[in-house]
Design a protein around this nucleic acid. Sequence first.
DNA 1: TTTAAAAACTAATACCTGTTAGTTTTTAAA
DNA 2: TTTAAAAACTAACAGGTATTAGTTTTTAAA
Lengths: 211, 211
Amino acid sequence: MYVKHQRKTTSNSQHQLFMAKRSKVNQRQRILDEAAKLFKEKGFAGTSMRDLGGEVGMEAASMYNHIKSKDEILESICFYVSNTYISQLAEVEKMDASYTKKVETLLRRHVYLMIEDGAAVSVANNDWKYLTGDKLIQFKEARKRYEQGFAALIEQGIAAGELQPVNVSVALFTILSAVRWVELWYRPGRGISAEDLERNIMTILLNGLAK
Amino acid sequence: MYVKHQRKTTSNSQHQLFMAKRSKVNQRQRILDEAAKLFKEKGFAGTSMRDLGGEVGMEAASMYNHIKSKDEILESICFYVSNTYISQLAEVEKMDASYTKKVETLLRRHVYLMIEDGAAVSVANNDWKYLTGDKLIQFKEARKRYEQGFAALIEQGIAAGELQPVNVSVALFTILSAVRWVELWYRPGRGISAEDLERNIMTILLNGLAK
DNA sequence: TTTAAAAACTAATACCTGTTAGTTTTTAAA
DNA sequence: TTTAAAAACTAACAGGTATTAGTTTTTAAA
C-alpha cells in the first residue's frame, strides 16, 4: 500500500540476488500498513506509538529510524488515498463514453479501492481531521477536487438527459456515502464476491430499490 | 438531547415560579451536548476533559459533580441514539402499510434524527468503539437489532414483489450508509431544506439515479 | 575479518490524561 | 440571617503520551 507494488530494484552487484528482507523502505511500509489497521480499529488519537510498535514487533522508539513522526504516518496514509482517488478521476474524465458509463466506472474504482485497501481508505475517511496545518488544508483541497469532478460528471449526465434531475450535491454525497459501509463491512468470504457486491450497489444506486 | 424536551417540573411551592437555571439535570445536559459536539469534531479519544470543561465553562474537575466519568458521557450519548432508533423501528413495525411505505417511513425518521441531532448521531456512528465491557456489548446488540428489523422490512418487501430482488444485506447497508453524509454535511441554510433533502434521498434510493 | 552504516535497544525528557481529595463559593429554602 | 446542601474551585495523583539522546546490535559490503 501507499507505495503500491514497488518492487525490489535488482542491484548491479552480481553477488546480490535479493535485497535485504528488512530494507528501510519495507520496514517503513510495514509500519504504515500496521498503522492503517490500528487507526481504523482504534482511531488515530486512540492508537499510541507503543501500540503500533507492539504490532510491528519493535520498540516505539525504534520506529523513528523509519518514520519522522506519528503525524507523518497519518499524512502518508491520507495522501496515498487522496492521490489514488484523484488519479482515478483524471482517467475517467479522459474516457470517451456516456456520462452514465463514466459515473459507473468512477464508482466502480472507488469501491474497488475500498475492497483492496479498506484500512487506508477508512483512515482517510475518518482520521483526516487529525491532520494539522498545511497538510490538513491540502487534504481538504484534494477531497474537494475529487468531489467537484465527480459532481461535474453527474451534472453533465443530468444535462444530457441521461440521469434523473436530482439535486447534484445530494446525489453525489448519497453515492459516496452509500459505498462507505464497504470499508466497514466487506471481508472476502462474507458470502458475497467483490463482483456481486459491486453489481448490487450499482443496481441500487442507478436503478433504485423500488420496482 | 438525550433527555429530550424534558421540561422544568413546576414545583408545588407557590413562591417558586421557575426552577433554578443551573439545576443538576440541566448542567449535566449541557455537558452532554457540548461533549457530543466536541466528540464529533475531534473524536472521543481526541477530546480531553479539560477541552470539554473549557467549552462548558467549568473546570474539568467540576464536571464530576454532574457526571460519573468520561466513559459515562459516551454511554449516555450512544444509548440515547440507539434507543431512539429502536423506538422508531418498533413504531414502524406496528404500521398498517405496504413494505415500501414502511421502509420509506423508517428511513425518513432515520434521516430526521440526523438532522435534529447530528452531533449525537455522529458520536454513536463513529465513537461507539470506545465503549467498554457490557456497554460495548449492549450497544452492538442494539445496533444489530435495528439492522435486523430494517433488513426484515426489506426482505418482506422483496418477497411481496414490491422491491427489486437485490441482496438484502447490501441493500440495507447501502441505504443506512447513503444517509450518513447528512450528519457530516447538512446544516440548515445549505441551500436545501430538510424536506427537499429527504425527498431527494428517497428518490435516489427508491427510483435510482438512472433514467 | 574488518568496517561503517543501518536499525534495533534502553533510558529519560517534558507534557498531557482522567480522576480524586479537600476547600471555598453559591444557591435557595427555613 | 442562618443553615445546609449543591456546585464550583485548586492542587495533586499516578500513569500514559510522543519523542530524543546515547548505546548496542545487526547487517552487508570491502
